[in-house]
Amino acid sequence: MPVRLDPRAKLYLLLLSNLTLFLHVSLRAEILLVILLLFLFFLSGKLKSGIRMTIIYSALVGIDFFVIPVAEGLLLNFLSMLSVGIRMMLPCIISGAYAFSTTTVGEMVCGLRKLNVPECIIIPCVTVVRFFPTIAEDYRQIRSAMAFRGIATGNVALLRHPAQSLEYILMPLLMNSNNVAQDLSVAAMTKGISLPGQHTSMIELKMTPFDVLYMLTCTIPFILFLGGVL
């Protein structure tokens, strides 16, 4: 059975990795944290993304150690952007990807409510997540409708008249979003989203000892860095 973390624990890991980036934590502490974060992917059964992230991170660290000392000129410029700039972002990206790929919308709502986030932030957040697939679907339909009329049939043709493409794609998208927003509101109101008082939830969230343990373990490299050990 795949191990799940509480959404709040995921949020904590996300903040922790942001802090790591913010304070320029040393490479050794960062590697430790990344190993811990990557371990989560494997625990939750996301083998593919786990392996992909591991390869990307180790490649960047590898470049930093072995290629940078011998690189020159423009190549050095490019590679250092890659190995420092991207690498420092990776802990955040890894924890973000983990949080996104393992949290259901219901869990997210429940977690945010437990954190006392105001409803006026939760509802737009949930709508955003819910709406991404709709945008992708709409986009495909708009492009085939355009192709049917012989407008911008390929990706290159889209770039030839950028302003026109923008208008022809964005306007139907906006029109439709406008309608979907109304439909979603009706659906949500029917389900009683605007009722006052405490709402019940299908999902019961509880911080398990494992959550707390993992949060503490992930903090250790950070504390060691602050203490000057790493």
């Binding site: 709508t127 709406f131 991404f132 906006l174 927003a181 979603l184």
Partner: peptide
């Protein structure tokens, strides 16, 4: 802001994010 307003905001934020 009413609930429909919030949902509208969510929808447009998603578009903006894309």
């Amino acid at each position: 802001l009413t609930i429909p307003d919030l949902i509208t905001i969510g929808v447009f934020t998603a578009l903006y994010f894309v």
